[in-house]
């Protein structure tokens, strides 16, 4: 990637996975040796890559996964608040994805059915450490404003690379055939 010569500083990037499978993060790593190139241009804030737990001011936030529980909401708000540009990364962040297939089931009925013992006793875990489930799984743009969408389950490494390349070099990202995939 040819970075603009006058790029004043490294761009700061946060990434997170909400209600996702980390597949998009795996795909991100699939850019392989280009990671080294990327490392010249960006530095990572909160991300599974750095293990930083909370986000500071960033240029770009990549969000994998939809919003299925209270913790997802907090994390998403944290990223939105700190990132100049927020990106929905992958099918779940864009449209709810696989977890959203529960959306026409009643969440209370789901929980009581799943946590029913053989004797018929219902014991839904109620530890305050556990984030509570929302009634539905929401695409992230139904909770916060989102600047860019990168669909795919997951988007391929090449797709992510093309997107980041555009973004880092100041071009409006454009994803088209054959990089644009919903599956």
């Amino acid at each position: 990637m040819n970075a603009p010569r006058d790029l004043p500083r490294k761009l700061r990037v946060a990434t997170t996975s909400l209600s996702g499978c980390f597949g998009c993060h795996m795909s991100f790593l699939d850019i392989d040796e280009r990671l080294l190139e990327l490392a010249h241009l960006v530095e990572f804030d909160r991300s599974p890559i750095t293990d930083i737990k909370h986000c500071g001011p960033c240029d770009i936030g990549l969000v994998e996964g939809g919003v299925c529980n209270a913790e997802n909401v907090h994390v998403l708000h944290e990223l939105r608040k700190n990132c100049k540009v927020l990106v929905a990364l992958g099918a779940c962040a864009v449209g709810g994805g696989l977890p959203a297939q529960r959306n026409n089931l009643d969440v209370a009925k789901c929980l009581t059915q799943i946590y029913r013992t053989e004797s018929g006793e219902v014991a839904v875990p109620n530890d305050p450490e556990l984030p509570l489930l929302l009634d539905k799984v929401y695409p992230i743009n139904e909770i916060v404003r989102v600047d860019y969408f990168l669909p795919g389950c997951p988007p391929s490494g090449d797709t992510i690379w093309k997107f980041l390349t555009d973004l880092l070099t100041g071009r409006t990202p454009r994803i088209e055939h054959p990089l644009l995939k919903f599956d």
Binding site: A100, N141, E142, Y148, F149, P151
Partner: peptide, 9 residues
């Protein structure tokens, strides 16, 4: 790139 509107589910 995205369905954009609120999903009716």
């Amino acid at each position: 790139l995205a369905p954009h509107f609120r999903h009716a589910f």
